[in-house]
Amino acid sequence: MSNANEQMAARYKNNFLKEIEEQAEMGEWVKMCMQCGVCSGSCPTNFHPGWDHPPQEIFMMIRAGKREEVLTSNSMWMCTSCYNCYVRCPRKLPITHIMHGIAEYAYRLGVAPKFQPTLHLSQTFWNNCTKTGRVNEVKLTQSLYFKDGFMAGIKKGLEMKDVALGLVKAKRLNIMEALGGGHKCKDIKGIQAMLAKAKELEAKRKAAKAAA
């Protein structure tokens, strides 16, 4: 267990709901859930066996104090942001955002599941687009295709070849991006400074909450 994680576990001993309310973004909404089940019934995660728990179950587990199981679960990472749950919830819980808030909290504590594909995608995407302020699609695709090794990457690339050619023809994909060309922000330094500042502010806010 990481250090931050141990500290939080000790501080909120036996009150995981309070921990989520105070530390995870949108966590204060969890207690509003009345366990009606509409979100779970609406959630595509629920219809795929590889996905641990639908949202209503996650909310119940939070109340039941199943800290370890919740934070290390892949559920929040599997949320597709389809917003089915969000629009149907009779208590108007911003479920999609709560799922993301808990995911981010688990990540911050260093207990998010390792090698989780959507977590990997999020990181790769962030690193990619913050470099120039625009997504370099060719490099993003490359890093995703080759994440499981060279041969797997080639195979995936060949599979998707026709799609890629179609995108190039429609001017949706610029192959020059492979060499560092393609679209970029005009003021790269500026956007990076902005993002750095935002990150600093957010980190400060969260650290203050964690220290409170």
Binding site: Q35, G37, V38, S40, G41, P54, Q56
Partner: peptide
């Protein structure tokens, strides 16, 4: 009818 039985989380 589609949904999840919240007693046992069975869909």
């Amino acid at each position: 009818l589609w949904g999840v039985n919240t007693e046992g989380y069975k869909r």
